[in-house]
Design a protein around this nucleic acid. Structure first.
Lengths: 226, 226
DNA sequence: GGATAACAATAGTATTACTATCATTACTCG
DNA sequence: CGAGTAATGATAGTAATACTATTGTTATCC
């Protein structure tokens, strides 16, 4: 029997915990699939409600806005990534090897995780690539931040920043480098798909090429001396 | 007497050239100021029309959607940046020095340019930092791309990629590195302002620190050997 | 068996993004 | 000078969006 994992999500992200009911899980499940299929702008709670056979009002009982649903999904993704990073680096002592593994987890495409049965990680990853920046490129960032909506993203960046510090404590921009790498990995894949002249990463080998590009970048950036 | 510059914009970006009339210039001028003040989501053509004393319908005669107005403004910015890059590197022969100057132009805050009297570059720069990604993180990227909306952005990235190639022709990811640097420079400034724990760049020295971080990153990345 | 919570059903509001129509003004060309 | 054309103003309208409110129905839990 496979283990089911349940990530602990911050209550400020929802009105009613979507993991506490079947309807809530449907909202998350089909929210991911519809965001992937039609993009954030075209996605509406009305369409979602119709698809899962409920009403707009019921969806609003779980999330106070579609922006908050996207925030929830990206926060879920970052929490899940944190968990994956811990797994991947758990039994590795060498700091350089730990960092290398972490960068691979961060920049590779995601595989289906069968311990989260109603979440399609592959679709969620595409949503994160295409939509996650909108979560902080928004007039209400400061309010959302005050409420703690970005906690998991911050924890993740801090954790990888610490791995960099383990390799080279003198490097002055560890967290900036991590946020750059994380966002660039999404960007390169998006460009490979839609604006290929903006990257050497190609559709065919987007995952390996992105990992190679960014791993090389990080290790050169933090190499001591010059 | 100061020289006025007029950038040649691609006609697919507008329905009627906004630089061909006073009303068109007002739309661009106040579009920038309002986008800066309220953010893309809250900005509407109705509010813009009200502010400049015209009607929604007249605004729609210049731009077929608010998305296209944002596209026009970012394309204008990239064209202007291209021009600045040419100026900055024109009389410099050493490839490394050329690249260093180009990176400074790309990552530093912008100053007011008095040769473009009705465009507030400082406000436009803030719009680019906060909103420009939305231009390609959009369900219609492919259609917009087919119409040539991203030409100036591509030209700019290619040009800086060429500077990298001049310094080290063997580096395998020149354009990916440029797009990473360009987007990261916006990201770091946005984070410094709104999510400071995600970067070492601080509000006070955002410009110099971003330039230092990214210049260091690029030159280490492309340094030959290991 | 009575209270409570969850949800369905329905309706409604203000706003948005955009289109259509028609009158008016201003400028242009012969 | 006078007709035609282009640009704009004025007004109206539409379908959809993002959300809220109300009320009734069902399942659940002590």
């Amino acid at each position: 029997m496979t283990q089911r994992i349940a990530l602990q999500m911050d209550p400020t992200l929802y009105l009613k915990d979507p993991m506490s009911s079947d309807l809530g899980e449907s909202i998350v499940e089909h929210g991911i699939l519809m965001l992937d299929a039609m993009g954030y702008e075209a996605f509406t709670f009305r369409k979602l409600a119709e698809r899962i056979g409920t009403t707009e009002a019921s969806v609003y009982r779980y999330f106070k806005s579609k922006h908050r649903l996207l925030l929830y999904l990206t926060a879920w993704y970052w929490s899940w990534m944190e968990y994956r990073l811990e797994l991947a680096t758990a039994n590795v002592a060498d700091p350089e090897a730990r960092l290398r593994l972490a960068l691979r987890e961060l920049t590779q495409r995601i595989c289906q995780d069968y311990s989260t049965p109603r979440i399609d990680e592959i679709a969620l990853y595409r949503v994160v690539v295409a939509e996650s920046s909108k979560v902080f490129l928004h007039a209400d960032v400061d309010a959302d931040n005050r409420e703690g909506c970005f906690k998991s993203y911050k924890r993740l960046c801090r954790a990888v920043g610490d791995l960099i510090r383990e390799v080279n404590p003198a490097y002055p921009y560890p967290v900036a480098l991590v946020s750059t790498v994380v966002e660039s990995s999404h960007l390169q894949k998006h460009f490979a798909e839609h604006l290929p002249s903006l990257t050497e990463v190609t559709r065919g080998d987007a995952d390996e090429a992105t990992t190679a590009f960014l791993t090389d970048l990080v290790f050169r950036a933090i190499a001591p001396g010059r």
